Amino acid sequence: MENLFSKEELKRYNRHIIIPDFGLEAQTKLKQARVLVVGAGGLGSPVLLYLAAAGIGNIGIVDFDVVDDSNLQRQVLYGIEEIGTLKIEAAKARLQSLNPHINIAVYNTHLHSKNALEIVKDYDVVADGTDNFPTRYLVNDACVLLGKTNVYASIYQFEGQVSVFNHLELDGTRGPNYRDLYPTPPEPGLVANCSEAGVLGILPGIIGSMQALEVIKAITGIGENLSGKLFTFDALSFESRKFNVKKNPKNPISGEHPTIFELIDYEQFCGSKVIDLPVKQVSPEELYNWQTEGENIQLIDVREDFEFEIVNIGGKNISLSRIAASADEIATDKKVVMICKSGVRSIKAIKLLEEQYNFKNLYNLEGGLMTYISDLELDLPTY
């Protein structure tokens, strides 16, 4: 097995190899492994750094975003010199400088039902570092259909979770998967992602490192991994708990009577895109035309006060938590456009006002303020 490694690699991995319960055998498994990391953001940053440093021989990275200055509070893979560049390219350069003995493949794409199986099939383990439910369910289902291990992690404000799904057990069966825990996606707009709800910058470093550890354990077989368990961590109290995850006979993809046999795109269920949601929409271009042509409209920005101070396009700032109490400040005799960062909170505001106060004149800014700034190429700050 030593012939698989150059002298430089043997020196680099010496601290692994001299561990009695790890040794050259486990290091060889890492070198031969193929790991796909979906998302090169907060979780993906520590996962990629530690997997590359550990000697995972083949790493794939799926991401389609660019580095933004608002990322740097938590995405330690990047520096200010990479702002505006593709994350996959910046990540690849950083990882190759960290470990030139590994192979890195990059996929500058959004993972969706048409490409997920084709990408995932070439890997042994998938590390899901996404922050949205559509991709999370897509990754899970692709792993189940292809028989791949899915090392899952998620973060939200001060809390994190880690688990290992669909792992091949010693008896030849597969462990529980994400749908055993959460059988179906949440309703549209019900749950905000990290860009909406925020996250303590150091939390993805903690949880992502645990996720990388579970990838290494799943590949090498050392220790006891989190298959069949959900680990949770509260950064404020520094408390952690482990919950057992059992197979659900009603799991729609792997239960007793499965109903899912192919991938679909889940945006319509999870509210990640607002195109099919039951509220009236206005595109950034349409809103801009209304503004420049003097249309009689009212803008209501439902973000928090501090967000409004960072960047806004005018209008009245009424945070989502105050929207019901401030309903009488919202016009009923003209078009009212509700605005938030990405279009999630504004949809919640519209639904509340329509259901409780019978508003009929509300429009959601499609994609939120960040899409408005991006699509119209405005010289305004993002966050």
Rank of each mutant, 00 (worst) to 15 (best):
E187A: 14
W290C: 02
Q268C: 01
P249D: 11
D276Q: 09
N296Y: 04
V282N: 03
F231T: 09
Q298T: 11
G208Q: 12
P278W: 05
L203Q: 13
V282H: 02
G189D: 08
P186D: 15
L263F: 07
L287Q: 06
K247V: 09
Y288I: 00
F231I: 07
R241L: 02
L287T: 12
F269D: 07
G205W: 12
T292V: 04
V215Y: 09
G221T: 08
F231E: 06
K242H: 04
I264K: 05
L213H: 13
I202E: 11
F233K: 01
E256V: 14
R241T: 09
P186K: 15
T232R: 01
K242M: 06
A212E: 10
S272M: 06
S272W: 04
C270M: 00
L230M: 04
E295K: 08
G223I: 04
A192T: 13
N244H: 01
N248A: 05
E256A: 15
K246N: 13
F238K: 06
G189K: 03
G271F: 03
Q298H: 05
Y266K: 04
L190M: 10
E262T: 15
E214A: 10
Q298G: 06
A235D: 07
D234N: 10
Y266G: 04
P204N: 14
P188D: 11
F238Q: 09
Q291G: 00
L299E: 14
S254M: 08
E214G: 10
V274P: 00
L190D: 11
V199N: 09
I253Y: 13
S237D: 04
Q298R: 02
M210C: 15
V215S: 11
E295Y: 02
G255A: 13
